[in-house]
Amino acid sequence: MDIFTPLEIEAIWLSLKISVWAMLWSMPLALGTAWILARCDFPGKFLFDGIIHLPLVLPPVVIGYVLLVTMGRQGFIGKFLNDVFGITFAFSWRGAAVAAGIMAFPLIVRAIRLSLEAVDQRLEAAARTLGANPVSVFLTVTLPLTLPGIIVGGILGFARCLGEFGATITFVSNIPGETRTLPIALYAFSQVPGGEEAAFRIVVISVVIALLALAGSEILARRMQARIGNGS
């Protein structure tokens, strides 16, 4: 393992860990949100939709700052979580996972929502007449038919998490071994004289990880299309 320096291994590992955790919390939530946006009509839906999309249009620093204020140790959410569960988010990798998940959230929701809206609701009605209750219809018909969108959303989201910088550095700062992900490490190297070579190595690593993720997702998506049988 002497291809990478210990610092690089640490950053790669942190980036992957933070991104995986970010996806773990945001994916189920995004699925639910996409379902609400695709299937439900309620007053204030426009506003709800807008709030979901905020991370896409706001400067990431704003999100990071809001997180710092609310989930920091003195923030009302952060204080509550710290007092009740003893979990702190500020300046820890957990906070980075929260920030990354929030930034990726609208991308995931959009992809899943598009796919959900393409599901033929007449198939769901047919499943109901065949004796399936609503939960069963969702699990056996809606979800499998939405899978391509879920995969696309997952890939986009994961890529977004790996690249997250602005909200992360604002909320959890640059702490080696805790919050110094690949982009933050790259930024740090670019700021010191003589860091060009180290920075360049991280660029290469980032490109390789991105390409691997894309290739993997492509294979997965193809397999999925073949399985659900409505691909072109």
């Binding site: 033929d120 007449r122 198939l123 047919a126 007449t129 065949l130 004796g131 056996t140 499998p144 409505n230």
Partner: peptide
């Protein structure tokens, strides 16, 4: 407990 045959077959594609 009704069986419904629709105009379009509505088979589950997956």
């Amino acid at each position: 407990r009704i069986g419904y045959v629709f105009q379009e077959s509505r088979l589950f594609p997956h």
